[in-house]
Amino acid sequence: MSKKKLTAVLPMRAGFWVNLSLLAGIVLGSWACQSGPDKLPVLGEKKVVRKLVDGKQVTDTVYHAIPRFSFVSQNGDTVTEKTLSDKIYVADFFFTTCPTICPKMKTQMKRVYDRFKGNKAVMLLSHTIDPEHDSVAVLKEFADGLGVKGNQWLFVTGSKEKIYEIGQDSYMVTAAEDKSAPGGVVHSGAFILVDKEKHVRGVYDGTTEKGVNQLMSDMDKLLAEKK
């Protein structure tokens, strides 16, 4: 795991955890970047920078974005940020042996998969937080058990440090090992909606039908949104 000190976590509901300091950034980002009732906010911290354009100093806003990454999917393929180029996607974090919220999450994510199946502008990206157990073969078996075919819903594994790091620093959710917790890990039940520019546009409770209904409604809005 990243050596960066983990900040406090806030229990939003049983089994649903969001990084407290980053949650504040989400709220502030929502206030700062909301541009109308029909347009989703850009979440996370933003920076105001000055740069030289055509010989003139101009002010520009740099929004929080998902950085470069490299993982391996259930199909054995390398998955990078380029795999999701020009697509919106939903990300989450889970592990195949999770006895608590993961079954609920995967039931709800399957609803999203079925709703947008075949839409080439939409992908789903599920990161295992137990890469020691969740090998490519295990993830393939898990995906097959859900009836997932092709590359629209990818289950990815890789370096544990990198997975935890991108979860906390980029997707704004937290997972932490806890021997006293069922399965040995406490982690977020969040589904994170990301746009084509890799900006986070929404965070939803992936354990509930209500939360995922809102996600799918917002996905429709995002697909209709002009750059």
Rank of each mutant, 00 (worst) to 15 (best):
S2C: 14
K3Q: 06
L6Y: 10
L6T: 11
T7P: 15
A8E: 13
A8S: 12
V9R: 04
P11W: 11
M12Q: 15
V18L: 14
N19I: 03
N19Q: 11
L20R: 11
L20K: 13
S21K: 12
L28A: 14
S30K: 10
W31N: 09
W31L: 11
W31K: 11
A32Q: 14
C33T: 14
Q34H: 13
S35V: 08
P37R: 11
K39Q: 13
L40N: 05
P41F: 07
V42W: 04
G44W: 00
V49C: 09
R50E: 04
L52S: 14
K56S: 03
Q57S: 11
V58S: 14
T59A: 12
T61K: 13
T61D: 07
V62H: 13
A65L: 05
I66F: 00
R68S: 09
R68D: 07
F69L: 11
F69K: 09
S73Q: 08
S73K: 08
Q74M: 02
D77W: 06
T78Y: 10
T80F: 05
T83E: 02
L84N: 01
I88H: 05
V90N: 02
F93M: 02
F94L: 04
T96S: 10
C98I: 03
P99L: 14
P99W: 06
I101H: 02
C102P: 04
P103S: 05
P103M: 08
M105L: 06
K120C: 08
K120R: 14
K120S: 13
V122Y: 01
V122L: 10
L124I: 10
L124F: 07
I129H: 09
S135H: 13
V136G: 03
V136Y: 07
F142S: 03
F142E: 03
A143N: 03
V148S: 06
G150D: 04
G150V: 09
W153Y: 04
L154Y: 02
F155T: 00
F155H: 00
V156M: 01
V156C: 00
T157S: 08
G158A: 13
S159A: 11
K160P: 01
K160S: 12
E161M: 15
I163R: 01
I166R: 01
G167D: 02
D169A: 10
M172R: 06
M172W: 02
V173Y: 00
T174R: 08
E177S: 08
K179W: 08
S180G: 03
S180K: 10
A181K: 02
A181F: 02
G183P: 00
G184R: 04
V186A: 12
V186W: 10
H187E: 02
S188N: 05
G189P: 01
D195L: 06
K196C: 07
E197M: 14
G206P: 05
G206C: 07
V212Q: 00
D218N: 07
